[in-house]
């Protein structure tokens, strides 16, 4: 198992180097000049522009800027935001709990609904349940997130008035020295109604963010379960006189979960991209919204640092998924 882990860790190093190049290069490919954007509508004289560019280091060759960026990373310095003048890492860590909270709720929702849906669809293959659920999954997968989010806001917030439109909690509540995770902070604060308010704010963004991963997980669960149900060892389990529940829920499920876990890991990466849109729609103060703001301001350090940190999170999540894969599948663990 340790060798398996070391093998996986070895893959991370070249991946991480690749991501630093992409993160650094991507933001510089965007049209627009950060110095001009900082100056705003007033404009800026060529002398002042050159002075600011030199001050921010943008006048140096790209290779030197990149090496400077890498050198900073080794010291834990992800740069300083051009817009706020605060360290990028600090900003990221302040906003990150909001994104984690939303993403965790969304992936739990996607998994808890997607897996049973896919499994029942496989067991009832060709039935009305199979057709309807997989049809719904296809619709969910094809639905643009921003449009789906707006529809839900119009229905549940606008017409029915059941959920708040945006934010993480009602303005009535305030927590000092919190963890950044609103569900935990509201629960620990003991303030009446705080937790309910935090939950009600999470519902719509979680549903929106969970929709595409849920559809993917449901379809993957169905196809994996269908494949496994035709395996010889499933027939053996039935020949041993095991109940249908045990055959499906123990013998087939464990094997079917192997590709589904990989899919869930990949969906967490997709979810980070989805979080950018969802957080913007619901004014959710997380990393996604911060990234959008930083891109529109051409805040190079924030964008490249943010991209790198998000990529690092996705890589760590995928490493955990790989380890889970090894635990659930003994053939991988022992290979």
């Amino acid at each position: 198992m340790i060798r398996f882990l070391l093998g996986k860790l070895a893959y991370l190093i070249p991946t991480f180097i690749g991501i630093t190049i992409v993160a650094f290069g991507f933001v510089r490919l965007l049209p627009g000049d950060p110095v001009l954007l900082m100056a705003g509508e007033r404009g800026i004289s060529p002398e002042r522009h050159a002075q600011l560019s030199a001050q921010l280091g943008f006048d140096r060759p790209l290779v030197v800027q990149y090496l400077d960026f890498i050198g900073g990373l080794f010291q834990g310095d992800f740069g300083t935001s051009l817009a706020t003048r605060r360290p990028v890492l600090g900003e990221f860590l302040t906003l990150f709990p909001a994104t984690v909270e939303l993403s965790v709720c969304a992936i739990i929702l996607a998994t808890l609904i997607g897996i049973p849906l896919g499994i029942f669809a496989a067991i009832k293959r060709g039935s009305a349940f199979d057709q309807v659920s997989m049809g719904a999954a296809l619709v969910g997968y094809s639905m643009p997130i921003f449009w789906w989010g707006l529809l839900l806001i119009i229905l549940f917030s606008g017409i029915l008035g059941w959920t708040p439109v945006s934010g993480r909690i009602d303005l009535l509540y305030f927590f000092r020295n919190g963890t950044g995770f609103m569900l935990i902070d509201s629960l620990m604060s003991g303030q009446k109604g705080a937790f309910t308010s935090a939950v009600s704010h999470l519902i719509l963004p979680s549903i929106v963010l969970a929709t595409i991963p849920m559809a993917v997980i449901a379809r993957q669960s169905r196809s994996a379960m269908l494949e496994v149900l035709s395996e010889d060892y499933v027939r053996t389990a039935r020949a041993k006189g095991m109940s249908a529940w045990r055959v499906v829920g123990v013998h087939a499920l464990r094997n079917a979960m192997i590709p589904v876990i990989t899919t869930i890991g990949l969906q967490i990466g997709v979810m980070m991209a989805g979080a950018i849109l969802t957080e913007t729609i619901f004014s959710w103060p997380g990393v996604g919204k911060w990234m959008i703001d930083s891109i529109s301001r051409r805040d190079y350090p924030s964008v490249q640092g943010g991209l790198l940190l998000i990529a690092a999170v996705v890589m760590i999540v995928n490493l955990i998924v790989d380890l889970l894969y090894g635990i659930i599948n003994p053939r991988i663990r022992h290979s």
Binding site: D232, A239, R254, N255
Partner: peptide, 23 residues
């Protein structure tokens, strides 16, 4: 189910594939 596996048993052609790889 109380008969199958207890009073009537069956073994199959592909022994490796007939055993669950995860257990």
């Amino acid at each position: 189910r109380s008969i199958v596996g207890r009073e009537i048993s069956m073994i199959f052609q592909e022994p490796i594939a007939s055993l669950n790889p995860c257990f």
